Simulated scan of single mutants.
Amino acid sequence: MTIDDLRDMVTEFSQRRDWEEFHTPKNLVMALTGEVGELAEIFQWLTPEQSQAVCDDEQGRVKVEHEIADVLMYLLRLAAVLDIDLAAAVQTKLRVNEGRYPVELARGRAAKYSELG
Rank of each mutant, 00 (worst) to 15 (best):
I3E: 06
T11S: 13
E12M: 09
E12W: 07
R16T: 11
R16Q: 15
E20M: 06
E20Q: 14
E21F: 09
E21C: 07
N27S: 12
N27H: 14
L28K: 01
M30K: 13
L32Q: 10
L32G: 01
T33W: 09
T33E: 13
T33Q: 14
G34M: 08
E35I: 06
V36N: 04
E38H: 04
I42K: 00
I42D: 02
W45F: 12
W45M: 07
W45G: 07
T47Y: 01
E49V: 02
E49Q: 08
Q50N: 04
S51T: 01
Q52I: 03
Q52E: 13
Q52S: 08
A53T: 06
V54M: 12
C55V: 12
C55F: 04
D56L: 04
E58Q: 10
Q59K: 12
G60R: 10
V62M: 10
K63W: 01
V64Q: 08
V64G: 05
V64S: 05
H66F: 03
E67R: 02
Y74H: 12
L75I: 04
L75M: 14
R77P: 00
L78E: 05
L78S: 04
A79E: 04
A80M: 00
I84P: 05
D85E: 06
L86V: 15
A87P: 01
A87I: 10
A88F: 01
A88T: 13
A89W: 04
A89E: 09
Q91Y: 06
T92H: 13
K93T: 09
K93C: 00
L94C: 11
R95L: 12
N97S: 05
E98A: 08
E98I: 04
G99M: 03
R100L: 15
P102N: 10
P102K: 11
V103N: 03
V103C: 02
E104D: 15
L105C: 06
L105D: 05
A106D: 05
A106P: 04
G108M: 07
G108K: 10
R109L: 13
A111D: 03
A111V: 07
A111W: 08
K112Q: 11
E115Q: 14
